[in-house]
């Protein structure tokens, strides 16, 4: 099993790439984009963001087991925000497909960039302070 701090570094890199990808998708859905940009966005999403998201979850579960973080109170709360981000990413991926076909995205997703920022701030604050 690789070193705990190496896993932590890989988790942080994968999480950074995931957040960048979700934020890019969120902006592409919130503001009208030309078809060529949408095609490039979908490629980035498929080849970078999705694998990074899968890695985030696999490494996150591994770190939780390795570090015995299960009893900590902040972890379930962090999971709520991570699940929210993952769900938002799924909806954004579906929206990009719709937009590329010339169909509109759901109206509530115009707030997606703000939701991403709220989730990231909450996750980072919980991980860094581990308040309970």
């Amino acid at each position: 099993m690789p070193d705990y701090s190496l896993l932590k570094i890989l988790h942080a890199i994968a999480a950074t790439l995931t957040v960048i990808g979700i934020l890019m998708s969120a902006f592409a859905v919130a503001k009208p984009q030309p078809a060529t940009k949408l095609a490039a966005m979908r490629k980035w999403d498929l080849f970078v963001t999705v694998p990074a998201l899968v890695l985030v979850w696999i490494l996150g579960v591994t770190l939780t087991i390795e570090g015995n973080w299960f009893p900590s109170g902040w972890l379930p709360l962090k999971l709520v925000f991570v699940l929210g981000l993952s769900a938002l990413h799924g909806m954004l991926a579906g929206s990009l497909k719709r937009l590329q076909r010339g169909q509109p995205a759901p109206a509530f997703l115009r707030f997606a960039p703000y939701l991403v920022i709220v989730c990231v701030v909450a996750i980072v604050a919980l991980v860094e302070t581990k308040p309970f």
Binding site: W57, I58, S86, M91, G94, S95
Partner: peptide, 17 residues
């Protein structure tokens, strides 16, 4: 756990699409 997350993610994507 990971399979359930992937399942939920795909439902979200298909639901919007």
């Amino acid at each position: 756990g990971i399979a359930f997350l992937a399942y939920a993610w795909l439902i979200g994507r298909e639901a919007v699409d």
